[in-house]
Design a binder for these strands. Sequence first.
DNA 1: GAACGATATTGACGAACGTCGATACGTCGC
DNA 2: GCGACGTATCGACGTTCGTCAATATCGTTC
Lengths: 115, 115
Amino acid sequence: MTALPVLPSHAVVCCSPVTAGVLDDGQAEVLARMFKALGDPNRVKLLSIIAASEGREACVCDLTEPVGLSQPTVSHHMKLLVEAGLVAREQRGRWAYFSIVPGVLDSLAGTLAPR
Amino acid sequence: MTALPVLPSHAVVCCSPVTAGVLDDGQAEVLARMFKALGDPNRVKLLSIIAASEGREACVCDLTEPVGLSQPTVSHHMKLLVEAGLVAREQRGRWAYFSIVPGVLDSLAGTLAPR
DNA sequence: GAACGATATTGACGAACGTCGATACGTCGC
DNA sequence: GCGACGTATCGACGTTCGTCAATATCGTTC
């Protein structure tokens, strides 16, 4: 499978550091949305599986068994991760592939601990 | 107010990187717990207020008004942040002070993006 | 177009969550 | 000890969430 196209960087639209001053409601909302997406053990595990996969992408068909959840549940979780902007979805024939959005984890890490 | 005592480093017990391989259920659970604590805009804002305060600590009496929530709600949120290991609480007379647990944000950031 | 396989969506259920008024509890000053 | 003050806890409420079986939708193959 080929590398995913490079998406526009989210760094400029993503996140304000928690530690750079008092966040306003909008900024806090943006951050909280992403953290909430990671606030479920199954979704953390799903993200780690994708991150550990070749090309940092994985087919949803390979995600169901490792987390031991039903297909609808995994689909639902993946939808939440996509909506949170952490992963991107690409339909390839019958298969849905998910990949880590480039730079997003770096950005999110940067909100917790400025570099 | 004096600096808080240096707490034992949590780095050794805190977190496994999301991006260093597939996490087991326990590791994912630990991370998810902290992310979930940050999954509420008000708690993100509370954390940012504490982080922006002198000495990275703040009195709960200074937290209620900026988030515009009732006293019981703020108390409840602070309890969740403490239980998640992100902040520590210290009673000083009538006042409860909360501080960022040293190193915890760095550790958590490191789980998202290894340095 | 029909059959098949993959996957998203729907609906129901029980659990968890965020909020606040009321109250309980601990500290301080007299 | 009592009253005032600060803050945690309780209980109720409406909302949100994680789960799964059933079903709908979409892409592929013949």
